[in-house]
């Protein structure tokens, strides 16, 4: 699997560019995961333990429970959209790290 000259993993891992990539990624992914878990688990918790509140009608026959369940779809799509947009930045940062590989050597086989 490895070629003649394996990538310089440890040197790349120590570069400021790679650290910046990891920081940028976790700055998005960690809050996004915490948020979607909190938002999602709020649904069974609220419906299970506060059924009267969730059954309150707010839009014709539609109650809070149904609208909140529908909003979960919007939430999931929104986070996916925001991540796709942020990931373009991560891709550019990752390419920069890849360019550093073998930067102080002559030629490199692809």
């Amino acid at each position: 699997m490895s070629s003649h000259r394996p990538p310089e993993w440890d040197r790349l891992a120590a570069t400021p560019q790679f650290h910046a990539l990891l920081r940028a990624k976790s700055a998005f992914v960690v809050p996004a995961c915490l948020f979607f878990c909190a938002y999602y688990f709020a649904l069974p918790v609220l419906v299970g333990y506060f059924p009267a509140f969730m059954n309150r009608r707010v839009l014709g026959p539609l109650n809070i429970a149904y609208l909140f369940a529908l909003s979960q779809f919007v939430m999931a799509w929104l986070i996916a959209f925001l991540y796709t947009r942020a990931a373009r930045r991560f891709d550019a940062m990752a390419e920069e790290v890849v360019r550093l590989n073998g930067a102080n050597e002559g030629t490199r086989a692809q």
Partner: peptide, 12 residues
């Protein structure tokens, strides 16, 4: 370190 770099950059 190798898994981190490879996982995040696709190198290799």
């Amino acid at each position: 370190a190798e898994l981190q770099v490879r996982g995040n950059t696709g190198l290799g």
